[in-house]
Design a protein around this nucleic acid. Structure first.
Length: 662
RNA sequence: UGGCCUAUGGUGUAACUGGCAACACGUUGGUUUUUGGUACCAAAGAGUCUAGGUUCGAGCCCUAGUGGGCCAACCA
């Protein structure tokens, strides 16, 4: 495998190191372990991309494991949705597994731990146990049941399992160390009594294992080589390893947990709990509302698997907290859609345009290219007639010559059709333009500045178009400790329009994606029917005109015509690297510094006399500046003399050399 | 009065493991264009949180500090 030298992220480097240390490639195995308590969101896409991506790269199996140890929150609906989302993204899992598959062996191992004196039944209230647990800065203390006999523990645990106790009466905990610096190691709970029906095991069990006891052991059972999760699980790693120590057969593979930073997207939230609240409060219309950052929401919005995969690949993998700008996501979807989406014409905010010199009853069916990015896409026919709709925004009675669209007396091209000239307008009693009267010319070869999209009124189809804006007004809505994320909701995140689309869209099918020319990318929504078309706006086109517009009104921004950097700063920068450069370049830089030094004052250099001894480069630069300044007639004061004499005694030859010139 | 993680242009990620800080997005110009799209070209923008240290040489190693994050659910 001689790929191009792509830089590898730290997880890939760990795997490469393991392989180099003798791990067989055949032992590589990964897993994606969602809890089926909600829908997957774009943050999960990163986790999915990492584990499944590794699987694809190394041709290693990846299990889809549902971490279903809490029957109170989990449902089959979520299992199905999660499978659908991963499959839609185009990833293939090896096996679908469930933590609940391992309830029996986990139970057997728990008995073993009790017998070894490494687990015990605690019978206190959760409050009492919390109290004994201490805090991050204070150690915990042992509880009264910590030294129960093995026989008693066995008996109690058996009766817990048999349903003899109510929830909260007893729990099983590992016996580790109540004084441990890591709070997770202070006798963590392994089992609790939960008299709830489980979506898969029904009522077979009334004790359920906790996450920590389950996760590592499940990885071990499945022989997962690298168990990758997000950073907040880092403190769990110690416990993960402790539990593994209790059961691992040294002849079998021992899983490794490694953690990466989760994905955050600006202007949205990434917490299942909070997303659930948006759904439950009716802020959005379900988990797949096109404004939701869920995979199903993005799918319904018109995003493609290609774009999402490209996105998480571009975002990279590291260990520092991050907030990724939505503009990157938008770039990814535009990039994909630009290549694959057929172009069509639709008018969202119509104004009537009449071509006065076009015959009343004439209709021409003109050829229109489907996608200039894709030659195989071919052409379609679109009807042209005397009365058209164009966008209100595309006409102004008067405008500067930076306005490339239609204005009175001005000419513009109608896409796929003729060049027209605006002659007059008809207005209503409010002064609103209701009709624009134009003349057309059949000479289409001329160059005109603007091109407008349009539809023929007689042939256009009405369609509902839903435009979406960000759900939150704040860049990081859930990062404020004093304000609830709900306070940042954008009241105008949904805008519904009655639009007119060209007749070729009559047969548009649910999910199909189009570019409405000059407007953006749209797809056919799930609720759309051939009688009542509904489109979602996936994302707008890049719009450099929209960016300019506000500038015209606002007083010219204080353009960041940043002053040229001060000479001294440039010198400092050059100096820093000085000793590091090859000789030829050093000469060049030296000359540069000497030149720049002419614009430096003594007051600017003086503070640099204190530069740390180690920063030889900077001190050389200072020496060079002094050479220039002295030549310009600066008097040698005491500070200079001191600096120079120190420099002459320095062990760095270059510095000595320059200093001696003074 | 703790432990762990982390710190590189506006954002995200790199830097062949110590040798002239790169790529993508974004931004700004320009060329092309029957989409103010796309494509192409170019530019600006960080000297790597601070202070020391090791080294001929540090973004990378060491020490201390500072900032940010995580850790006290019978959640995962």
């Amino acid at each position: 495998m001689s790929e191009e030298k792509k830089s590898r992220n730290f997880i890939e480097q760990i795997i490469e190191a393991d392989l180099a240390n003798g791990m067989s490639k055949n032992d590589l195995r990964f897993r994606f372990p969602p809890e089926p308590n909600g829908y997957l969101h774009i943050g999960h896409t990163k986790a999915i991309g990492i584990s499944f991506g590794l699987g694809e790269y190394y041709n290693a199996p990846v299990n889809l494991r549902f971490d279903d140890t809490n029957p109170a929150k989990e449902e089959q609906e979520y299992v199905d949705a999660i499978k659908q989302d991963i499959a839609w993204l185009g990833y293939k899992w090896d096996k679908v597994l469930y933590s609940s598959d391992y309830f029996q062996i986990l139970y057997d191992w728990a008995i073993m731990l009790i017998k070894e004196g490494k687990a015990y039944v605690d019978s206190q209230s959760s409050e009492a146990m919390a109290e004994q647990k201490g805090t991050p800065t204070e150690p915990g203390v042992d509880g009264p049941y910590r030294n129960r006999s093995i026989e008693e523990n066995l008996d109690l645990f058996d009766r817990m399992k048999n349903g003899e106790f109510d929830e909260g009466e007893h729990i099983l905990r590992a016996k580790i160390d109540m004084q441990h610096v890591n709070m997770l190691m202070r006798d963590p709970i392994m089992y609790r009594v939960l008299k709830k029906e489980h979506h898969r095991t029904g009522n077979n069990w009334c004790i359920y294992p906790m996450y920590d006891w389950t996760h590592g052991e499940s990885d071990y059972i499945e022989q997962i080589s690298h168990s990758l999760c997000s950073l907040e699980f880092k403190p769990h790693r110690e416990l993960y390893d402790w539990f593994l120590d209790q059961v691992v057969d040294p002849n079998k593979l021992r899983p490794k947990q490694r953690e990466f930073a989760r994905l955050n997207l600006s202007y949205t939230i990434m917490s299942k709990r909070k997303l659930l609240k948006l759904v439950e409060d009716g802020i959005v219309n379900g988990w797949d509302d096109p404004r939701m950052p869920t995979i199903s929401g993005l799918r319904r919005r018109g995003y493609t698997p290609t774009a999402l995969r490209k996105f998480v690949e571009t975002v990279g993998v590291a260990k520092r907290d991050n907030v990724i700008d939505v503009s990157l996501l938008e770039f990814c979807i535009r990039e994909d859609l630009n290549k694959i989406a057929p172009r069509v014409m639709a008018v969202l905010n119509p104004v009537k345009l009449v071509i006065t010199n076009y015959p009343d009853d004439k209709v021409e069916w003109l050829d229109a290219e489907n996608n200039q990015e894709d030659e195989s896409a071919g052409f379609r026919k679109i009807p042209f007639s005397k009365a058209l709709y164009i966008e209100k925004e595309d006409f102004k009675e008067e405008a500067s010559n930076k306005f490339f669209r239609l204005k009175l007396g001005g000419e513009v091209r109608l896409k796929n059709a003729y060049i027209i000239k605006a002659e007059s307008v008809v207005k209503d009693s409010n002064g609103e333009v209701t009709e624009i009267h134009c003349t057309y010319s059949e000479d289409t070869d001329r160059k005109v500045k603007g091109t407008l999209h349009w539809v023929s009124i007689a042939h256009a189809i009405k369609a509902e178009v839903r435009e979406y804006d960000r759900l939150f007004m704040d860049e990081a809505p859930d990062s404020h400790q004093d304000k609830d994320f709900m306070a940042f909701l954008n009241p105008k995140s949904l805008n519904t329009l009655q639009a007119f689309v060209e007749p070729s869209l009559k047969e548009a099918k649910i999910g199909e994606r189009y570019q409405f020319q000059r407007l953006g990318y749209f797809n056919v929504d799930d609720v759309s029917t051939s009688n009542a078309l509904v489109f979602n706006k996936t994302v707008g086109l890049r719009d450099t005109w929209a960016k300019q517009k506000p500038k015209q009104n606002q007083q010219a921004k204080p353009q960041n015509n940043q002053p040229k950097r001060k000479a001294i700063d440039v010198i400092k920068q050059l100096g820093k690297k000085y000793t590091n450069l090859p000789e030829a370049k050093q000469q060049k830089v030296r000359a540069e510094i000497l030149e720049l030094a002419k614009n430096v004052s003594y007051d600017e250099v003086e503070p640099l006399f204190n530069t740390a001894a180690k920063k030889v480069g900077t001190r050389i630069a200072v020496t060079l500046i002094l050479q220039v300044l002295l030549k310009q007639g600066l008097d040698k004061n005491q500070a200079i003399t001191e600096f120079v004499s120190k420099a002459i005694e320095d062990k760095n030859e270059l510095l000595k050399l320059e200093a001696n010139k003074l």
